[in-house]
């Protein structure tokens, strides 16, 4: 992701379905994510501050902070690669 503004725009434009189907109306790409992925995308649509997102996820999932941070970074970089 080049910058925060791009990231915010990307997360906001994604159409999320509760069954895990995700559609990007700009690139036409579609893919599926698991329950955690949907949860994370919902959080990213609310805030692109990754620390805030990590804090919110820590309230839901029993995971170590460094583990959460790594998973969030992996997820967001995979997403930006897929949507580029």
């Amino acid at each position: 992701m080049d910058n925060l503004k791009d990231a915010k725009a990307l997360y906001h434009r994604l159409a999320l379905s509760e069954n895990g189907f995700v559609f990007d109306p700009v690139s036409g790409q579609s893919f599926t994510v698991n329950e955690t992925g949907i949860e994370l995308l919902h959080l990213l649509q609310q805030s692109t501050d990754l620390q805030e997102v990590q804090k919110a996820l820590a309230g839901i999932y029993d995971a170590q902070p460094n583990e959460l941070e790594r998973d969030i970074n992996d997820f967001t970089s995979s997403l930006s690669e897929l949507m580029s």
Binding site: P25, V26, S27, G28, Q29, S30
Partner: peptide, 22 residues
């Protein structure tokens, strides 16, 4: 506007989806 989702052997669209590409 449409993104090609599947192509024929000749590269023609067999399936596609509308997009909003500025």
């Amino acid at each position: 506007m449409m993104k090609k989702m599947a192509l024929t052997d000749k590269g023609k669209a067999w399936a596609g989806v509308t997009v909003l590409d500025e």
